[in-house]
Simulated assay, not measured.
Amino acid sequence: TRAPRHRSVVYMLYGMLAVLGTMGRAYLMIVLSHCVVLYSVALAKQRWLCFAAGLCSLASFRLDPFSTWQNGFVTRTFDLQDVLFYGGCGFTIMRCMSFALENAERKEGIYSIIDLLKYNFYLPFFFFGPIMTFDRFHSQVSTSELRRKDNEMWNIRAHAFLHLVAIVAVDVFFHFFYILTLPADVKFVNRLSDWALAGLAYSNLVYDWVKAAVMFGIINTIARLDHLDPPQPPKCITMLYVFAET
């Protein structure tokens, strides 16, 4: 089937309206200002300058007085607002860096700032990632033909069901397992055997992986419904030999 015209623009507008409704006008202006600054840097097509500008933008959320000044624009109205604030800003800057680096590699012409905004404000990726590089996102969202592989919808439904099961598992872990509170008791931990301590550490790592798998899995499922091929979720800790494979 043919893709709806301007679907990437619709994604962008929907994402911007969702961010505006969730975080407020001041937060949206902060995000847009970072996008404009990093887009301006991208026009120079210098990779080192793109890296430096991106790192400086990230540092501005950790170093005073820049951090306090930017935080002062956003009024806290709900518990998760801090998480959304830093998550959205951090991933925005990383997406801008990906855009700038791809623009530097482009031999003829430059990408427009609208291309950057389409990329940044795709809502499923906005607050918590994952980072889908600009070249992949741009090529997939700009395609005129939408095709699904055989049994792809069945696979999407199956993955969605597994993610619901994982959500229940995370809730059970959080409320009925003591793996999260035991490490806080140093005296108790000192009395544990090496095997028990290793098991406790392993359980905490698996719990962290399940949380990440739930978050990335739900986001990826939504992206696949939009005919995108998002990055794969992290591997289970049990299947890793080195952490570089996560």
Results as ranks from 00 to 15, higher is better:
138 H>E: 01
138 H>M: 01
139 S>T: 02
139 S>D: 00
139 S>E: 01
139 S>I: 01
140 Q>A: 04
140 Q>S: 03
140 Q>T: 02
140 Q>W: 00
141 V>M: 03
142 S>M: 06
143 T>M: 06
144 S>M: 08
145 E>R: 05
145 E>K: 06
145 E>H: 03
145 E>L: 08
145 E>G: 00
146 L>V: 01
146 L>T: 00
147 R>A: 06
147 R>F: 02
147 R>H: 03
148 R>D: 09
148 R>S: 06
149 K>R: 08
149 K>G: 05
149 K>W: 00
149 K>A: 03
150 D>H: 02
150 D>Y: 02
151 N>C: 03
151 N>L: 06
151 N>W: 02
151 N>Q: 06
152 E>R: 04
152 E>H: 02
152 E>V: 00
154 W>A: 15
154 W>V: 12
155 N>L: 10
155 N>K: 13
156 I>C: 09
156 I>N: 05
156 I>Y: 05
156 I>R: 03
157 R>E: 09
157 R>W: 09
157 R>V: 14
157 R>I: 14
157 R>N: 13
157 R>K: 15
158 A>D: 06
158 A>G: 05
158 A>Q: 12
158 A>S: 15
158 A>L: 13
159 H>C: 14
159 H>S: 14
160 A>M: 12
161 F>Y: 11
161 F>C: 14
161 F>Q: 14
162 L>M: 13
162 L>W: 07
162 L>Y: 05
162 L>I: 05
163 H>I: 15
163 H>N: 15
163 H>Y: 13
163 H>Q: 15
164 L>M: 13
164 L>Q: 15
164 L>F: 12
165 V>Y: 09
165 V>E: 13
165 V>F: 10
165 V>H: 10
166 A>H: 04
166 A>S: 12
166 A>T: 04
166 A>N: 10
167 I>V: 15
167 I>A: 14
167 I>Y: 04
167 I>C: 14
168 V>L: 11
169 A>L: 12
169 A>C: 11
169 A>I: 10
170 V>L: 08
170 V>Q: 02
171 D>P: 00
172 V>H: 01
172 V>L: 14
172 V>C: 07
173 F>I: 13
173 F>W: 08
173 F>N: 11
174 F>G: 08
174 F>R: 14
174 F>D: 10
174 F>N: 10
174 F>T: 14
175 H>K: 12
175 H>T: 10
176 F>C: 13
176 F>W: 11
177 F>M: 10
177 F>N: 09
177 F>A: 06
178 Y>Q: 11
179 I>Y: 07
179 I>E: 07
179 I>M: 08
180 L>D: 15
180 L>Y: 07
181 T>K: 04
181 T>R: 06
181 T>C: 05
181 T>P: 12
181 T>M: 05
181 T>I: 10
182 L>T: 15
182 L>S: 07
182 L>F: 07
182 L>V: 15
182 L>W: 12
182 L>Y: 09
183 P>M: 14
183 P>R: 10
184 A>M: 08
184 A>N: 06
185 D>S: 04
185 D>P: 00
186 V>G: 02
187 K>H: 11
187 K>A: 03
187 K>W: 04
187 K>S: 11
188 F>P: 04
188 F>V: 13
